[in-house]
Structure formats: C-alpha cells, structure tokens
C-alpha cells in the first residue's frame, strides 16, 4: 500500500508546461534523444501537481523538500534518476519512470536536523548522462 502511495505521488503527469522559474538551475547538456527536460525546480511542496514556493534555500522546519521535473517529447517509456547529494556525498538515488509524450516526476527528501548545509540534485537519464544539477541549501 505504502509503495503504491509513493509511486502515485512520484509519477504524475502534467500537461501544462510551466516556464523555468528563476533560480531553478540551468540545463547543462542537451539530451541525445528527443526527450527534453523542460522544467526542473526545487520547491517546498507540490500542490495541484505544481511546484509550490520554488526556492534555493529551505528551512529544516519544512521537514521535506521536493525536486520537481517535467519532460516533453518523450517517444517511449524510459527512466530517469534524481540523485540527491549532501555536499559531495550521494545520499539517495531515486529511479523514476517517464512515459510519452510528456511527463512530470517528483522526488522528495525527508529532512533531519543533520541535513543543514548545501545540497544538490543531479537529474540524469537512463544512461547516467547528467541533464541538470539543481543546487539548494537547507537552513535553520
């Protein structure tokens, strides 16, 4: 049941493509396939399948932080990864599935008191090619 709930939360489709918000990071590499990462942002929460309060600094009091990504021009079912790093240490790697033609995915990180400091999330494709790196900080 829990697995199903998480899967439902993470794999959600958005047909409205939001513009890239300021501070959401920059796409570092062009994907070799036609699949395009159109939107990637760190946010405080997800509401109505949309990122709420995108930011680069999150208070630890929030308890959770989200990484929201949207892909378009997906030609076939594929997978991507959200790799969560605290400083240069890989903390978590989340495998997410994308389905054509357009798909949004979410991953989140439960925050603990020791998680303060700089973080980043690397978004990579199935071949481990880096698509984007989102940098943020966890503050008091």
């Amino acid at each position: 049941m829990k697995i199903l709930k998480i899967t439902l939360l993470i794999i959600q489709t958005f047909f409205v493509i939001s513009p890239l918000p300021a501070g959401a990071g920059e796409i570092q590499e062009v994907m070799p396939s036609t699949m395009v990462l159109s939107h990637a942002v760190m946010c405080e929460s997800i509401e109505d399948f949309k990122p709420r309060n995108p930011a680069i600094v999150f208070s630890i009091d929030l308890g959770k932080v989200f990484c929201f990504t949207t892909f378009k021009q997906i030609t076939e079912t594929t997978r991507i990864y959200h790799k969560w790093f605290q400083r240069n240490r890989l903390v978590s790697q989340k495998k997410l599935t994308l389905k054509p033609p357009q798909w949004s995915t979410i991953s989140s990180m439960q925050l603990r008191m020791a998680d303060r400091g700089p973080w980043y999330v690397e978004i990579t494709d199935k071949d481990d090619t880096l698509l984007q790196r989102l940098r943020f900080s966890i503050s008091d």
Binding site: P21, G23, S59, R135, S137
Partner: peptide, 20 residues
C-alpha cells in the same frame, strides 16, 4: 569546478530566497 553557495542561519519566514 562549479561553485555552490553555502547559506546558513534562518531566513525570515515571510521570505523566500528564490534565486541567486
């Protein structure tokens, strides 16, 4: 090497640091 900002302390609850 890329540089990352290391924010610390507590931002006012009314504010969001949207971009840098």
């Amino acid at each position: 090497l890329p540089i990352q900002l290391n924010w610390t302390g507590k931002l006012s609850e009314e504010l969001i640091l949207a971009n840098a």
